[in-house]
Simulated assay, not measured.
Amino acid sequence: MNRQIKLIWDFRGQAAAKTAEHHEIHLKEFLDKENYILKITGFEILNEMYAIAYLVVEEADMIIFRDALRPHRGEVYLVES
């Protein structure tokens, strides 16, 4: 199994949750436009002033997505079983 990378966008402030939720919509649109096989996206509200949006890609595709979408950071995606 190939490693997968979770690309992450951080949002802070009172509108963080809504901004992260809206950003996920654009990430889904990008995946559809690019016909990308993985469709793993999401957003998480970490507290009232901090939320993230994320997209998971194959490690081999990470640089292409990084350059096109400019995430704030990334990490290895681990599937919880």
Rank of each mutant, 00 (worst) to 15 (best):
N2W: 11
Q4S: 11
Q4I: 07
K6M: 04
K6S: 03
L7T: 10
I8L: 13
I8D: 12
I8R: 11
I8P: 11
W9F: 10
D10Y: 06
R12A: 09
G13Y: 06
Q14G: 15
A15K: 15
A15W: 10
A15T: 15
A16Q: 07
A17M: 11
A17D: 12
K18P: 03
K18F: 05
K18E: 11
K18V: 06
T19D: 04
T19G: 02
A20I: 00
A20E: 00
E21S: 11
E21H: 10
H22P: 03
H22K: 09
H22T: 08
H23A: 06
E24F: 12
E24A: 15
H26Y: 13
H26W: 12
H26G: 14
H26C: 12
K28T: 03
K28C: 09
K28V: 02
K28P: 06
F30V: 08
F30R: 06
F30T: 08
F30A: 07
D32Y: 12
E34C: 12
E34H: 14
N35F: 12
N35D: 14
Y36T: 13
I37W: 13
L38E: 02
I40L: 08
I40R: 04
I40K: 06
G42M: 03
F43A: 07
F43R: 02
E44H: 06
E44F: 06
E44P: 02
I45W: 03
I45L: 13
I45A: 09
I45K: 13
L46A: 05
L46P: 03
L46R: 08
N47P: 02
E48C: 14
M49P: 04
M49V: 14
M49R: 12
M49L: 13
I52L: 09
I52N: 05
I52A: 05
I52P: 03
I52W: 05
I52R: 04
A53L: 05
A53T: 03
A53F: 05
Y54L: 09
Y54S: 07
Y54N: 06
Y54K: 08
L55A: 00
L55S: 00
L55I: 00
V56N: 09
V57N: 00
E59Q: 15
D61W: 00
D61Y: 00
I63Q: 07
I63A: 06
I64H: 04
R66H: 08
R66G: 04
D67H: 03
D67V: 01
A68S: 11
L69T: 01
R70W: 08
R70N: 14
P71V: 01
P71T: 01
H72V: 08
H72G: 11
R73L: 08
R73P: 05
R73E: 12
G74N: 13
G74W: 09
V76M: 12
V76A: 13
Y77F: 10
Y77G: 01
Y77S: 03
Y77N: 03
Y77T: 02
L78P: 05
V79C: 05
E80A: 05
E80D: 07
S81L: 14
S81N: 14
